[in-house]
């Protein structure tokens, strides 16, 4: 019975973390930007958080804050040059970043090499995870319905036109990439503190594409969409056990089908505003 509860508790925590990842993808997709560093930034957050907890025993709130700031700084360094160029450059630079980090984790002895870090204290609970998710979702929803949301939409529809209309496109994009990295870092740290183990294999290319599939399944017409998508894709393989082995195939298929049949619906949707 205890096993049963434990298994579902970890699913419950996992879904909350997925929801945060979905939001972090939303943060960039809402502006029509494709950053594929979500898994990498999640990894930075997870390793940062785990090291702080294991070695210094800092208060959990401080650990989480640092785990959000470190990936945000990394995003600044990578996003800076890539954002001056095209969306393609940003996508490539962020995928490359994930790959180089994976190799770095495997080769680093401080980070446990290929075995990863174990024995991370279980400091995250449902209240923390869902509290953070709720607050983030609330803030994003408010932002998307304000002047900020209209600027996002303008940038997504036509960058040049948005620039002409007086929107500081580069600043908006930069903030989006940094925010998205911070959220992914938070998700990583939370995940590390509820699963007690992290390894270099968890933050690679497959993970990055999976986060994208969360956002695409839910649709990015409002911040709630990616969160719902994340819940669905996280819960499905657990509910339908046979689907487990086909998880990645299924995620890939979702991206293909959604992008082909609803291309404008994804990058060119319209947000319904209140008032």
């Amino acid at each position: 019975m205890d096993d049963f509860l434990w298994a579902y508790q970890s699913l419950f925590y996992g879904l909350g973390v997925n929801g945060l990842l979905g939001l972090s993808m939303y943060a960039v997709l809402a502006l029509g930007q494709l950053s594929l560093g979500q898994a990498a930034f999640m990894g930075i957050g997870a390793y940062t958080g785990a090291l702080l907890s294991l070695n210094f025993g800092m208060p959990f709130a401080l650990v989480l804050a640092i785990a959000a700031v470190v990936p945000a700084v990394a995003a600044l360094v990578i996003g800076g040059p890539a954002l001056r160029l095209t969306g393609v450059h940003l996508a490539i630079a962020t995928i490359g970043f994930g790959e180089v980090l994976r190799v770095f984790y495997i080769n680093s002895e401080t980070l446990g090499g290929g075995l990863g870090l174990t024995g991370i204290p279980q400091r995250a609970d449902g209240w923390t995870i869902y509290g953070i998710l709720g607050v983030a979702l609330g803030l994003f929803t408010l932002a998307s319905r304000s002047k900020i949301g209209r600027a996002w939409e303008a940038i997504r529809e036509d960058e040049d036109a948005a620039k002409v209309a007086g929107i500081n496109v580069t600043a908006y994009k930069m903030v989006a990439v940094i925010l998205s990295a911070a959220l992914a870092g938070l998700a990583g740290a939370l995940n590390a503190h509820c699963s007690s183990f992290i390894g270099p294999g968890e933050y690679g290319f497959d993970a990055a594409v999976t986060v994208l599939s969360f956002a695409l399944l839910g649709g990015v017409s409002m911040p709630l969409g990616p969160v719902v998508g994340a819940f669905l894709l996280g819960a499905l393989p657990e509910v339908l056990r046979p689907l487990h082995d086909f998880r990645l195939i299924f995620n890939g298929l979702i991206i293909v089908v959604v992008v082909i049949f609803l291309p404008r619906g994804l990058l060119g949707f319209r947000v319904r505003r209140m008032g």
Binding site: T86, V88, G252, I255, I260
Partner: peptide
């Protein structure tokens, strides 16, 4: 848009 085709091949390669 250009990024749609990048995304579709991302899904495709995972699949």
């Amino acid at each position: 848009p250009e990024l749609s085709s990048l995304m579709v091949t991302l899904g495709g390669v995972l699949l």
